[in-house]
Design a protein around this nucleic acid. Structure first.
Lengths: 233, 233, 233, 233
DNA sequence: GATGAATGAGGATTCATTCAT
DNA sequence: TATGAATGAATCCTCATTCAT
């Protein structure tokens, strides 16, 4: 969490509106932070997280390296904050609404309801995918990627455990982890294609997930996966 | 390539092994190459490909940077060669045998026959997973990872098109790509766990893939995925 | 180029020097650049251009390698900029004045007027000679040396074509090229000697050039070369 | 002077023809040396002396670096030996003959007699020019270039002192040095051009030198420089 | 807050040279 | 002899980070 250096105010005694200044300061600071995070997102997407350099981010943001470090202590923190914000953005725009709304949907529609916005969100925020994946190292999720990773995983776990009440915690976790992993894998395929091919991959991902999850739901849900509707950006 | 001056041999008539000299020469080099590739594999696994440095690889191999560069022009080439060798190793030990053997198996056994050795191979050669994934950037596969990526993808495509004769080339490709992506995703999960959890993830991956692929096979194959045998290292 | 956020100035109405800030910033940078170029000049003279290393230049300038690279992308650029500045310095201090002044001088005095300052300038800026010559490879002038080389050559061509109106462009070019080459050759000899010997070499160079160029001038100029005055540093 | 490692012979006691073996050895060694020097010449011409690497020379010669160092202790020695051999080749093919023959020629013909073969020799042995010039550093001639430089200079001095009997040693040296410098400068121009332009530059160089030297010869030689015959390769 | 200058360790890569075979 | 493997210091250049202004 970037904390602009407030102690630098050699507090002049006659401040008339004690929080007027700080507010403006914070506003400016917020803009800077947003600017930097946007730049970071852009650079992460172009070069990947590991190869992204703070200097490149500052340059992309149109500020000096020093300015960047006034808001973030290091590269890690940038990724962390970016992940945090993207997660919040996701939660606020869709996430929480979804959780409630999907409670009683049949699987086909639940997948549509969850995947379509998530895919759209990734399309609009390509850095999200970068942060979902973490660095090069297969299977290892480092701190800066944990917010996004764990955040999404937890939501998925919630949804799944909501639909599979009679399942052990461990198995729910496993199914959630696998679902998430499959989603990420499919998402890469989707984002790597355009137009009709992309739509086809969206349908394919829904197929995989439907067929995977459907059997867990007992008899509640008819096997209609191949006809999953295709709604893609 | 400078050809060792063979004419300098005041040709004794009974030279028993005419290429003994060059062979021994290359033997040391071959060992070094193997050593360097092993070191590279190790470093790639520890730090990821992007963050891996040639100096680190040389250090890990116990040689000087200069030695590394006598065998490889750059990091890319190391990854490429490592991928090449791993692919060959895989093909020779299992790949070709598999392709033939799996032609007529029911899906459950086909998955066992394909996935178990592949998982085992990845367990024994963790760098394989690194090379399957490529660098940080989601969806982008650079040259040095192409051998492994395309190699495996092609095999999967072959198997799938063998089992789905009446499907368009494009759809086969899509199913293969999705299968491969799902496999990679599941593999990461598997390799990230140990013992019973790992076994459970193996079963889970087989479930995903079985349920995904089974419907494509028409009526030929009974839906017995949940009972898939778990055979893992 | 990141624009310093000027709007942050809670604009005092009477800002006297609105660009004072950026100027001071650049001032330090300018000094560094000058310092680096001076160091480069020194290193070029000591080791030659090809063998000069950027690290050695940075060391000579008393800064870290990174600092050097904040101002120059590579060695080439240093040589280029150094050449550029030396040419400007030359042009401003003597060059333009010369061109006008020498228009109607007899050859002896023209040579004095041109060569004496040029030799003095080379004595004071020994790197100039390095840049006039280019790297090791005889006859090849690479980009970074072109400014100085072509710059001087063009001036010489101008002077010569001014004095030989009835000569073809090609021949003027040839005479200029030869004159320049001879000058460079003589200059090396001059700079390699001291005191009386140097003076003698200066006279000798003037002789060569006078005798070479005099016949081209028709009958206008008496053959008084051997008596060329010797004015050297 | 490269001395092949002869002590390695674990001298078998029954050598029938004591110098038969060494001779063959030397023959091989000579061939190697020639091969290496040829390669060195080629590399020097392509990259310049300073940037030439011993590895590149070995590669060009088709031998291993170790072999190179069996014949030469370092890069310097290669340049030295190459210079030596080129000087000998020059002396034997033209040099000595010239010195005698040119004793009584008028200057025009003397220049033809000296310059034409010298230019031709440089055309056939482009490394000669590299060695005449030495490294990047203007005016400094290092050891490895001394043979060629001093060798040619001495010949020129001889010729000049032969034609100017009543001149001081110092002035002869100066005139010789200047003549040589001018020649080198002109030679670069000549070698940098082709066809008609080259011929024109040859003529131009002869003009420079004729006009420069003619006045020193008193009345013996008519002023016919502009009509100097053009004989070029 | 913001800047740009500065750092120095570290990265990739090369090179003259040596050594075991 | 000849080889090619090996070295390690030196090259160019980058980067995360700090600091004076």
């Amino acid at each position: 969490m970037p904390e602009p250096n407030r102690s630098a105010n050699h507090a002049t005694p006659d401040t008339p509106a004690p929080e007027a200044r700080p507010v403006r300061r914070q506003a400016r600071g917020e803009r800077r932070i947003a600017q930097l995070l946007e730049a970071a997102a852009s650079v992460f997407c172009e070069t990947g997280y590991t190869a992204a350099s703070t200097n490149a981010i500052a340059r992309e943001a149109g500020v000096s390296p020093g300015t960047l470090y006034q808001y973030f202590p290091n590269k890690e923190a940038i990724a962390f904050e970016l992940g945090d914000r993207l997660m919040h953005r996701w939660s606020e725009s869709h996430g929480t609404a979804l959780a409630a709304a999907t409670q009683d949907l049949p699987l086909t529609q639940l997948l549509d309801a969850v995947l379509d916005p998530l895919i759209a969100f990734n399309y609009e925020n390509p850095a999200f995918a970068v942060l979902m994946h973490g660095p090069d190292i297969p299977g290892r999720i480092t701190q800066e990627f944990d917010t996004v990773h764990q955040g999404l995983l937890t939501r998925i776990e919630e949804i799944i455990s909501g639909h599979l009440p009679g399942t052990s915690r461990a198995e729910t976790a496993r199914i959630a982890a696998m679902s998430f992993a499959v989603f990420k894998a499919g998402l890469d395929l989707i984002l790597a294609h355009e137009g009709g091919e992309r739509a086809a991959y969206v349908a394919e991902l829904k197929s995989v997930m439907f067929r995977y999850l459907d059997p867990y739901l007992g008899e509640e849900s008819p096997a209609c996966a191949p006809g999953a509707r295709i709604d893609t950006p």
